[in-house]
Design a binder for these strands. Structure first.
Lengths: 338, 338
DNA sequence: CTGAAAGCGCTTACAG
DNA sequence: CTGAAAGCGCTTACAG
């Protein structure tokens, strides 16, 4: 394949390499006719600036790092997809860096990526965006860093999140609107603070509707469909059985659904079930599960925007960008009137 | 953060930059004591070679591209995970490049990535590894390219795959071993040739066991759980109902399972169901679905090995590496004696 | 508006 | 076994 360099373009256009550089970087101060000529030659020769040479001489790498814990999770996948789309639009490239906090040298790995690749910015996905030690590495490196859906608010250049509390509140209001009063709630693991916020939203809506929450109806799972099944058993065995169960993630909702099916309890006729996340499992189930769509890809794309935005980059460090993106209730077949 | 360069290390160690270069690249011809000294200084200064400078002066970028169609699919996720692990081990980095063949300028995008990033190699996931136009772009660029689970055998530096036919055969033998004779088979879409190979395996095992296949028991789906449900209805309504259904992917198996539940047909007591892929849906279901594990991550890691292996890189173009990786039958609760 | 000079941080030949 | 020179392909100051 042609290894066309800036010199080739310059020679053919009869200008200096610097002028070609100006044109391809969209700088001002180039005579329109010269600009046009250069652009024509660039197209003819299919010239692609060497990203490495560019990075070496400038201070930018045009590379963003996506740091994730478990790259195989559906969550990570969606986040990555959004980041990829954002990068593509801005002519950046994305380097995916798995971070295994249990590995002995994870810190060296992260430092290595930052230093060797001269990343222009980092996007950190949950749950590792809540790890103080990791955030310290980024802070120390001075790398602009945007956190996606962090639980707390660690020091970072920016954060992008959704309103878990408000979303859970809306879902609960929806169930109440269907006439449900006795509603079971399946909590997530304590470590996952978004889960706590979801519970808050649930309780807030219940209180606002003047409905007392029976604490027997509140059970704690670990976000797996397995605990969803177990806790479903428990809730459905209650003397006064709930008419609806709100699980704080979809996998647990699926577990509840399976348990209901095992016991021949028709969903949604005799039991409404809803989840949170809009995970693939919510669609694989039957009936499909009513849930909350997290704007995962949109959050990641917004993170890219924050990092790439020149104004932001300049002020990185003292300016912070905090975005709250809208969620969406996805109403499906698993919920119905009480 | 420290911007330590090779000169800093050289100065502190009292040697030339070239010697430092030799040490960090593990070249021969460095006196042991000098090597040790340099390594000590490198560690002290936490020196990280600038990947861009390295790439610019050498011909290697230490970057591999993973080209995928739909980065959100579970398949892509697993492949990426394996590639990531492979890269990590070899001190390479992975750049993920989504390829949207429906976009007007997909070809320019791919060319751009290859040229601008000076990739050392490309890993191409299915189904785009079967697109002739895309493969032509890689061929033209001269970039070493390894295909993961291609259906046909397009020209490429290497391929890594599993034996779909053999796996389906083994699964069928397993069902036959359980005493099943009337077995339904849900085909995948014609476009997906692996699906055809799975059917071949099924038929081969049946023939070997002397069992005639009733063509009414063979139905074609599109790999979605939706068609799994529909075709499940059809198979279960057959005058003589199958005692087992082998779906050529897990999503369809899940659909069959749901249909069975709806009709109150106990699985595995009255119907055995099995799938293919070991997708998340096979575990989310209840009972969990017996399936075939594709070594997706392993295939991708092997692809990295092929690309990074110096011997291979040298001969790239005229030498081809073709690997067949072992699969695994995952026996779970959805299958039982006839 | 345009270009010549210098340099980014490495590695590739090439001498010793 | 070791190092001085040149260069990879761009961009950053700096002149004009």
């Amino acid at each position: 394949m042609s290894i066309v360099t800036i010199k080739d373009v310059a020679a053919k256009a009869g200008v200096s390499p610097k002028t070609v550089s100006r044109v391809i970087n969209g700088e001002a101060y180039v005579r329109p006719e010269v600009r046009e000529l250069v652009q024509k030659v660039v197209a003819e020769l299919d010239y692609r600036p060497n990203a490495f040479a560019r990075s070496l001489s400038s201070s930018r790498s045009y590379l963003l790092g996506l740091f994730i814990d478990d790259p195989v999770s559906g969550y990570a996948t969606d986040v990555q997809h959004g980041a990829l789309i954002g990068c593509r639009q801005r002519s950046y490239h994305l380097v995916v860096e798995p971070v295994d906090l249990t590995a002995p040298d994870w810190e060296g790995q992260v430092r290595g990526s930052i230093a060797a690749l001269r990343l222009d910015g980092a996007i950190v996905a949950p749950p590792i965006c809540d790890e103080a030690a990791l955030m310290a590495v980024f802070a120390e490196s001075g790398l602009p860093t945007v956190l996606v859906a962090p639980s707390s608010a660690p020091p970072a250049s920016g954060t992008v999140r959704m309103d878990d509390r408000r979303a859970a509140q809306e879902m609960t209001e929806y169930l109440l609107g269907l006439g449900h009063r006795r509603i079971g709630f399946v909590q997530g693991p304590i470590s996952h603070s978004a889960s706590a916020r979801r519970e808050e939203g649930f309780r807030k809506a219940m209180a606002a509707a003047g409905v007392t929450v029976d604490e027997d109806c509140i059970v704690r799972g670990d976000f797996s469909s397995r605990t969803g099944m177990e806790l479903g058993e428990r809730l459905l065995a209650l003397p006064e059985r709930p008419t609806a169960i709100f699980a704080s993630n979809d996998d647990m909702a699926l577990g509840v659904l399976i348990t209901a099916m095992k016991h021949g309890i028709a969903v949604p006729e005799r039991l409404s079930v809803c989840g949170f996340d809009d995970a693939p499992s919510s669609r694989a189930a039957w009936p499909q599960v009513t849930t909350v769509r997290q704007p995962k890809a949109e959050m990641a794309a917004a993170a890219v925007d924050i990092l790439v935005n020149p104004q932001f980059r300049q002020k990185a460090g003292d300016e912070h960008a905090h975005l709250m993106l809208p969620h969406e209730l996805i109403l499906r077949g698993s919920t119905g009137p009480a």
